[in-house]
Amino acid sequence: MLTFKKPALEDQSWAEPLLYAAGFGSCEYAFSNIYMWWGAYGIEYTQAEGFFVSRSIDGDSAIYNFPAGPAVDDLTALRRVFDLLREDCRALGKKFVINGAGERQASLLRALFGDDIQLQNNRDYFDYVYSAPKLAALPGKKMHSKRNHIAFFEKTYNWSYEPITRQNIPDCLAMNEEWCRQNGCSTSESLQIEHCAVKKAFADYEQLGLRGGLLRVDGQVVAFTFGHAISKDYFDTHVEKAFGDYRGAYPMINREFAKTLQDEFLFINREEDLGEEGLRKAKLSYKPELLLEKYTVTLED
């Protein structure tokens, strides 16, 4: 019988290597993301048969992420861990659901369970994946407007860029509070949840191994961003915030941070749009290399 637990920093030493080894590119496989958001979504996890497995409960469903570990393509090993997950689900009396499964995971599930699975994708949860070098350079005619906004920012403001460190995290937190005030966090449940997640990440920034950068104008932080590697090829951007009244701040922080990543990673995952029209338009405007399709999978018992 599996024993799931709430996320804790000390688990990163065993959990992160398993998540990293799977080589999945989706945002669900960054330990720092799990740690930031577990309180909002009731995420728990455990280690089973050499795999990292996570679970949350939503109504009559037990929702598991596809197991992660170095043997992720070994169908025999996967069958053993899925037997344990199904046993756990039966003990809970819930419907068995796999969430956030990409095409690679879906193919493995088809090989394991054939017609016993039902797959449904949801466009709102597709991850936007970009070429790291292209985000750093913004080349071509399609990126002309981005470069114009950046040029305006560079010419108009007395700006500087710096990596996020222990010393400047208080400045980021102050900017986050003001951003929330300006954007109505007090009346938006989703923004309140995000606000708490950002504060949690900054509280344990160094221990989580997060990487980020900030923009200052006349010494004041006007934008910041941070994230974590998911695999050897993918970096996941967890958060990006900027004051909207500084024209060009968003493309500027995006570009400057991408410059620091382009020599280490092929791709930058900028996560989902959650069905928000403005966010979808903004993410598409950067011309993603691919939309990482993700399925919700139900398995008949």
Rank of each mutant, 00 (worst) to 15 (best):
E289F: 15
C27H: 04
C196T: 14
K199M: 02
N122M: 08
Y35W: 12
V72L: 08
I98Q: 07
R280F: 12
L84D: 15
R216W: 06
D74Y: 12
K142E: 14
P288D: 07
G227S: 11
A132I: 04
K200N: 09
G100N: 14
M252D: 07
Q207Y: 05
P251N: 08
G102T: 11
Q220I: 15
C172R: 08
L274H: 10
A203C: 06
L92A: 09
A229V: 05
R123D: 04
L274G: 04
N269K: 08
F202K: 01
K142M: 11
Q118T: 13
D233M: 03
D301S: 13
V239N: 01
G248N: 11
V97R: 05
D263P: 04
M36N: 04
G278D: 14
A223C: 12
A242R: 10
I169L: 15
E87M: 07
A151K: 15
A174M: 12
Y246H: 08
P170G: 10
E177S: 14
D204G: 00
V239A: 01
Q192P: 06
G275I: 11
K200P: 00
T296G: 12
R104F: 09
F235M: 03
E194N: 08
E103D: 09
T165P: 00
F66Q: 04
A242P: 05
G114W: 04
F224W: 14
F235L: 01
A106P: 00
D204W: 06
P139T: 09
D116I: 03
D245G: 02
R90S: 15
E300R: 15
D124P: 04
E206N: 10
E178H: 12
A21H: 07
I34V: 13
G244R: 15
R280E: 13
G278I: 14
P288A: 12
H228K: 11
I63L: 12
G184P: 01
A132G: 01
L138W: 00
K259T: 06
M36V: 02
F224D: 02
I34G: 02
F257G: 03
M36I: 03
G275D: 07
R270H: 07
F4D: 05
L109M: 08
D245T: 14
E178F: 11
V53P: 05
Q105S: 05
D233Y: 07
E16W: 04
Y125Q: 06
H228W: 03
K146W: 13
F126S: 02
A101F: 06
R90D: 14
D116K: 10
P17T: 03
D127R: 01
M175D: 05
N99C: 03
L108K: 09
K141H: 13
P139E: 13
L109K: 02
N122R: 11
G278R: 14
N99T: 08
T76E: 12
N122G: 06
R110F: 00
H238D: 00
I98H: 06
